[in-house]
């Protein structure tokens, strides 16, 4: 196994993406994502990468669409304000079945807001964000290791389903430094048979369009997309369970908050409180399957997020019992400490 290196989340992710064969990066600087474009810019000459600092996030996302259309690996990284601009292209890329990877280093909104960590883009990322009926796979890393591991995974999933994949990073995961084992280099695959890269001897032409040709055709097009999303929902729910088997209270937390809760669970268990956690790794598709074993068992579900409760409804749907779901969150870039969460758990136990 390769050696561990001590690296920042964004830089480890960028290096992992390069090793995953992503040779095209289009970015617009925005805190807390800027280390990713900076890393690409620095490595471009030696690694033979294409790096363009785009005029806007709108353009950066569309440049990624252009590369993805050729079947090659391309990427951009941004934060909430930039992702809002990119939502037009997210809708487009999903409709056009383009395998792009987009990183959102979430920061506290709304509007310009603050630059520290947040999970306030949950709804935007998991419910589409742009116009129309579409979804994108969203992976939420909780460590630098997972952030780096998600680079090759994101491209593999994007290509498997021909759909954009989002990495839901945040200001904390992005800037955090940890030990990480970087993924092995993969060689780029050959031409994709569906790609728009000039026929160049292919013998037939490929056309990608997202313009409907009458409501009947466009409904059929949409139903095909929905069938794809249903398949993703069936196959790609990912989560981790920690101490859930005997738990009275099951925490539901992802990303940074899941890390805080690891320590809160240890504090609780030391005091004999039976607390566990379901950690969604994909926040779309939401890991509903994880909850199936715990429905109707009298358990409490404690959702904690760095937002005003955006994941709560997904948990309520998954457990089919509104009354059993509690929420605690912090806003504005504030992150609760493990003791703060532990105290909330104690209150719930009363």
């Amino acid at each position: 196994m390769a050696d561990k290196v001590f690296m920042q989340g964004n830089e480890a992710f960028a290096e992992a993406a390069i090793r995953s064969g992503c040779k095209f990066f289009f970015g617009y600087p925005i805190t807390p994502s800027s280390e990713i474009p900076e890393y690409y810019a620095k490595k471009a000459p030696a690694e033979g990468l294409t790096f363009i600092q785009a005029e806007t996030e709108v353009s950066a996302f569309n440049m990624v669409a252009g590369v993805a259309a050729t079947g090659k690996r391309g990427m951009t990284a941004t934060a909430g304000p930039g992702f809002s601009l990119g939502c037009e292209a997210m809708s487009y890329m999903s409709a056009a079945s383009l395998p792009a990877v987009i990183v959102d280093c979430m920061r506290p909104g709304p509007a310009d807001g603050e630059i520290l960590g947040s999970q306030g883009d949950y709804n935007q990322l998991t419910k589409g964000g742009g116009h129309g009926d579409y979804n994108t796979i969203v992976l939420a890393p909780y460590s630098v290791q997972e952030y780096a591991d998600f680079a090759p995974l994101a491209f593999d999933l994007a290509e498997k389903y021909r759909n954009p994949v989002v990495i839901a990073s945040d200001g904390t995961i992005a800037k955090m430094m940890e030990n990480v084992v970087l993924p092995e280099r993969v060689e780029p695959k050959g031409r994709a048979d569906w790609a728009v890269d000039g026929m160049n001897g292919r013998g037939h032409h490929n056309d990608i369009t997202t313009c409907g040709d009458g409501p009947e055709q466009w409904e059929r097009f949409n139903l095909d997309l929905q069938a794809k999303f249903a398949k993703i929902r069936e196959n790609e729910q990912r989560w981790e369970e920690i101490d859930t088997a005997d738990a009275d209270i099951i925490i539901v937390a992802f990303g940074t908050m899941a890390r805080v809760c690891l320590d809160a669970i240890r504090l609780a268990r030391k005091d004999g409180l039976k607390v566990g956690m379901i950690r969604p790794i994909t926040i779309w598709p939401f890991p509903e399957k994880a909850f199936a074993n715990y429905i109707g068992k009298g358990k409490k579900f404690f959702v904690t997020e760095l937002n005003a409760g955006q994941m709560v409804n997904d948990v309520k749907i998954a457990v089919n019992d509104n009354a059993s779901v509690e929420f605690y969150g912090r806003l504005g870039g504030m992150i609760p400490s493990p003791v703060e969460i532990y105290n909330k758990l104690c209150e719930l136990y009363k």
């Binding site: 904390t172 955090m176 890390r259 690891l262 320590d263 240890r266 493990p338 003791v339």
Partner: peptide, 9 residues
């Protein structure tokens, strides 16, 4: 073991 990056004390 891996744990919280936010410190209580």
């Amino acid at each position: 073991e891996i744990g919280s990056m936010i410190i209580s004390e």
